[in-house]
Design a protein around this nucleic acid. Sequence first.
DNA 1: TACCGTTATGTAATCGATTACACATCACTG
DNA 2: CAGTGATGTGTAATCGATTACATAACGGTA
Lengths: 345, 345
Amino acid sequence: MKTSKPKVVDVARMAGVSTATVSRVLNDPSVVSEATREAVLKAVKDTGYRVNRAARNLRTNTSRTVLALVPNLSNPFFSNILSGLERELSAADYSLLVTDSGDVQLTADQIQRYIAAGQADGLVILDGSIDLNELQMVQSAVPPVPIVFACEWVEGFSGPSVRADNEAGIRMLVQHLWQQGHRRFGHVAGPDTNVLSHRRQNAFEQAVQDCGGEIQHGWMLPGDFSIAAGKEAAARVAAMRDGPTAWVCASDQIAFGLIAGLTEAGIKVPDDVSVTGFDNIEMTEVFNPPLTTIHQHRNKMGNEAARCLLQLLRGGQPSQAAPTVMPVYLVDRQSTGPAREKAQA
Amino acid sequence: MKTSKPKVVDVARMAGVSTATVSRVLNDPSVVSEATREAVLKAVKDTGYRVNRAARNLRTNTSRTVLALVPNLSNPFFSNILSGLERELSAADYSLLVTDSGDVQLTADQIQRYIAAGQADGLVILDGSIDLNELQMVQSAVPPVPIVFACEWVEGFSGPSVRADNEAGIRMLVQHLWQQGHRRFGHVAGPDTNVLSHRRQNAFEQAVQDCGGEIQHGWMLPGDFSIAAGKEAAARVAAMRDGPTAWVCASDQIAFGLIAGLTEAGIKVPDDVSVTGFDNIEMTEVFNPPLTTIHQHRNKMGNEAARCLLQLLRGGQPSQAAPTVMPVYLVDRQSTGPAREKAQA
DNA sequence: TACCGTTATGTAATCGATTACACATCACTG
DNA sequence: CAGTGATGTGTAATCGATTACATAACGGTA
């Protein structure tokens, strides 16, 4: 009775070949003759052999593992992306290591820890708040560390990234609102430190200008992507006279908070003002009123990011050039409606 | 200029000691004299040395990694738990590997793959739909694989688990509704295959009986934990005459779907019927009406599960005995209100 | 026949850390 | 002073797979 786990030697002995041959069958079957290959495979099956990852990793100096840096694991938004990543990676026999980059400002040093320790071969970063210098230090290491950004990214970083078409999304929303007769537009932004916030805010200003709508400085409210931010914004909005009739929020959660706050203040959505979100998270559909928003293919973004990284890991060119931009589309629901001019008190 | 990564030998040379001593300083400092310890630590710092995990793993036959089996990564419910897990594990210098047990029915073989390959030292399972036999096979391996269940669990499995006090939660809800004057109760259940569904459903029946309320077979609706399930239930509810005035749902998402569906059908919540959820996910607060539900400490459950597993990994006794049951509490919001008898048409 | 190129396989070095065992030193004790 | 135990350190074996290099066998060609 074999008591310990089977190893290559055991397989080799049973198949009557050398360990080298066993290894070859497992890693590059084409160089082995048909007959021996079958004998070895049979022996593998009979012994129940499984390669020892640690040994392989040591020898080959790889880990077949990818590390995902997630700004906040508690945020449901990211779970879909992780899901997409995981699926694609595991299909390629890679594992997914997850860490919450959360409250700590990640330094090159900390990132290197994973790489240098041989725990991960590459990174998928979902966190755009990482310092560019640190990033470049990581990337300029020898050998360079394969990195792919997903969803968020860092301005100035030259490497592949997968993202939604934020500009197009915002444009669709503004145009949609415009067509419903809205002329005065407001925005509740995401966190100041976040690329997506900036992109969406800029796109918003641009889009409103393009169709000739009105924006005022006081209608650009700060926030982060949270429900709480939406609520705070609601307080300000409630206090406005002749404010916007349409509010474009940087995230669904902000929109939820805003609508909740407005409703509480007696302002009706969409009768008095229209509100839009961004992301189309699951809940938007059952929210009351159901939220008009922009849908992103989060799962697919995860898949795509994984594919991108795998390509890098296999030594493919940094598919440099432009970031991969995933299309988005408008989901028209009942949080938006025809503009109604406020009584010009 | 050193071109390659520093290794123990490099550190040893610089500190003027042997590799054994370096290793000792890093792993069990107490056996090394003060002076050498400092010299070594300095050398470690100066060289920028980091242990090679693969080498260590190979030698020690451990991975300092824990695998989390998540039934559905896309479900926001789990991200909080992962977050709690990750925090606790990384504090103990363990890494978190994540895999979606999703659509595939996991077999012992597949689980063993991770363990046997030396990719993980233990498991945290969030998926209660794993077959008991398979599980026992895994656990009865030599050496046994440390496993901790979190949130969900498998009936009959003898091992540590961390869970919410589902019974107490349901009881609180029913009593709360009873106090508001409700006498006829209905339930929308979770998936048939899930322990939580059963627990909550049984607890519901028990609680209603205990206070003398009325249940009918037709008021126990099937579902899964999804919004869609809630919507389907709504259709049935809308068709009822003299149905329950209070609906207890197995999850917040079901409640959302149910309320959305009822509202659409012209039934008002809470004026016509009261509805409760379970989980207190973030969105409950801004939902319209805000949802009365049961709060679970998901983060803490993650922490606790991690601590449990770490204890096992360190050779502690399977802290057997009873599962760890985390307290829950009622969050009273506006989806529930005084019972109003339906017109006895 | 002698030589060459393929193809298939084996031998043994190697990856980098941990650790069993051996050894040296020193302070005490009887 | 010899003996004992505690303490600190070094030498070298070891974990299990991969792979550079060597070798063998064979068919074909000059």
